[in-house]
Design a protein around this nucleic acid. Sequence first.
RNA 1: GCAGGGAUAGUGAAGCGGUCAAACACGACAGACUGUAAAUCUGUUGGCUUAUGCCUUCGGGGGUUCGAAUCCCUCUCCCUGCA
Length: 415
Amino acid sequence: MKMSALNFTITHRLNGTLARAGVIETPHGTIETPAFIVGGTKATVKAMTPGQVSDIGGQAVLANTYHLMLQPGADIIRRAGGLGAFMHWPEPTFTDSGGYQVFSLGMAYKKGIDATSHSQKGESSLATHNKSQLAKVSDEGVAFRSHLDGSQLFMTPESSMELQHAIGGDIHMAFDELTSPLAGRAYVKEAMDRTHTWAERCLARHQALNNEHTDNGEPLQALYGVVQGGREEDFRRESARFLGARDFDGYGIGGVFEPEEIASVVAWINETLPEDKPRHLLGMGAQPADLFLGVEYGIDTFDCVAPTRQARNGALYTYDGRINIRNQQYGQDFTPVSAECDCYTCLNFSRAYLNHLFKADEMLGATLASIHNERFVVRTVDAIRISIIDGTFAAYKAAFLCRYYGSDKAERFIL
RNA sequence: GCAGGGAUAGUGAAGCGGUCAAACACGACAGACUGUAAAUCUGUUGGCUUAUGCCUUCGGGGGUUCGAAUCCCUCUCCCUGCA
């Protein structure tokens, strides 16, 4: 008998687009899609309690294998009863494979070697770190140096799967290699081929581990293959075809960096992938355009750390665009961050109060700001889901983006 | 009263004859952040400005010098000992 780790049902489609609404069922509950998955890298959504994550409408959390294997160690999490039990999050969980860290620890992107750093002025500590390269890729796997203590590590597709199964999230990502936007076509191809080989190795190890779970009477865990291929249409379609032909429970789309790429890259992939499997856009969702375009071109779930990171740094989302709450002008502004927002922060606190918390460096500022930004993004995706169901997506998208960006700038995201 | 020490940009604090509009830190003012090496990072921060440009600054005043935040005299205020 075939048991599946995950069920995905598409309930609505939007004519003339790749958009759909549906439900993902996991052993820890369901996710109504499209959905924004909250970033919980180190088994915590920074500055928020699980109760607060639940209150803002978060349906699932995504944690990171690399970070958790270093600290506290996958075995600790396994012994705690798995990721959800460990962090007191009873709802669905995802883990990322550590593949992103291959990229961010191993190559410089936007920090060290790109065109913007010609000035040589104040070099950030991150840029300095990038020069020292904490990761090296080979066909067998990736040699890492821990960013915490410098110790030598080696991660392979198999070890990533073993770690992810020990951590015990509901949905895992295959171990992949994403390439810098600066990489040439030849390297993009090489990395994609390696990602494909790794994906097959991940699948094999994953299925063996799931067999063990079955023997032990434990719930099955799901695995998404991760599509790569840079900005090259033929590679992206090839990657979607290759992975789509294999028995993954769903697909992650990796290596997308700019909102402008979403429409094209995601469309190539989602036209090619099997329709009946969920698709997760890895790491994108910092701004409304990402969300609208992603959904329009067939994305079911997103994750992004920007809402919480930007919140911690004082950038708050409003329907009229982003504001920096530290700015002087908010010091005497006793209105909420967004009058139309229904989050705990907006219902109870003023911009002036948040401005004070940030200037005084009080931790509550980070919490209230994170609650607001996460609610803003989750609610936006929820509203998008409703607009698919009732067929008003196009009008909703146009109105939302025009107001957020201004009609001039919004144009590039519409049509 | 005597003997020492000190007063530097919003604050603290370097500098002790030229390379000083003056390090550094904090503060202030802006910006960035997309599978979190991020409660982080970047820029600006005397005035005028396009400026490798000019102007006004280092407690007040007066000197020495080609040249002073830096040396001398004096005044004001502060600190530390001894009376």
